[in-house]
Amino acid sequence: MDLRFDHLIHAVSDPERARHAFADRFGWHTVAGGEHPGFATYNALAYFGLPYIEWVGVRKPEVAAERPFGRDVLRVLRAGEGPMQFAVRTNDIVGMADRWSRAGLVHEGPIEASRVRPDGVTLRWRMLFPAQEPGKLLLPFVIEWPAPDEVRLADLRQSGLSPDPAAAPRLRAVHAVVGDLARLRRSMDAYFPGVLEPCESSEQGRGVRWTCGEVTVFVWEPAEGALRRVLDTVGERPFLAEFERTAGVRTRTAADAARRLEAAGAPVHGLWVVTSE
């Protein structure tokens, strides 16, 4: 199963204000996005090569409430701004949907979507949503872009949307917290079999990781300490983005993740960010 981390979705009340806040705090190259007419949402973005962070807001709540994705953004925003979900990229979304159907797995899609970039280029993609537990977004959704990765990356750099790779930090890891890791593993193993590996346990808790292309996704069930406070405060969701200017993810245990969280300082619009050389 060739799946790669595509992007982290960060629900915010005002994507433009959010992108400028991250640019001011971390020096990121951020760009305006566009409208998602099919979902009544709109966005702004920061690319780190092909992986990116998407700040998404709701344009028309009454319409978004009736649409997939739009209603999820609304629900997250009612609890406060913050990361809500991540997406993984495939080049065979129809085949994946067929496999889920044959296995009797409930899903929605593939759904066609599009938006117009500020430079007038129309982007198109397809999305596939696994069934989630009520009120939760613990599983990633799947996205397929029509162009190969190398073509998309060249276009992003040529258009100025993605910065010079020598000057930009690399998104190396995304961390999430859950209350019941075993339950999450059962759902993940159904939709995405074989992708999770156990992490070393520590007094801070236990976790799993998904090496998803150049980005590793960690999911922790915290027992105590800083990660437990995050779970108690913001609930089950992604919370920390880890950047490095050199290759290699150093986090191995929940205690490591807690130290990274403490090094991050205050969150920005509900997302903690840590960068190391």
Rank of each mutant, 00 (worst) to 15 (best):
M1P: 12
D2Q: 11
D2L: 13
L8Y: 11
I9C: 12
D14N: 08
P15Q: 10
E16S: 04
R17K: 13
A18S: 12
A18P: 13
F22R: 13
W28N: 00
P37Y: 11
P37G: 07
L45N: 10
A46Q: 07
A46N: 08
G49T: 05
V56L: 15
R59E: 10
F69D: 05
R71F: 02
L74H: 09
R78H: 10
G80E: 01
M84W: 05
A87P: 10
V88K: 10
R89W: 10
V94E: 15
V94W: 03
M96T: 06
R99V: 02
R99P: 07
W100F: 06
G109T: 05
T122K: 06
R124M: 06
L128T: 01
P130A: 12
E133R: 14
G135N: 02
K136H: 09
L137V: 02
F141G: 00
F141N: 02
W145M: 11
W145Y: 09
A147D: 12
R152G: 10
S159L: 15
G160F: 02
P169H: 02
P169L: 13
L171W: 04
A173T: 04
A173D: 12
A173F: 04
A176Y: 03
R186H: 13
S187E: 08
G194R: 04
L196P: 01
P198F: 06
E200T: 11
S202Q: 04
R206P: 14
V208I: 15
W210A: 00
W210D: 01
V215T: 11
T216Q: 12
W220V: 13
E221C: 10
E221F: 03
E224N: 07
A226P: 10
V230N: 11
G235M: 14
G235Q: 07
R237Y: 05
E244K: 09
G248V: 13
R250K: 08
A257I: 07
R259T: 03
P267D: 07
P267Y: 06
H269F: 15
V273A: 13
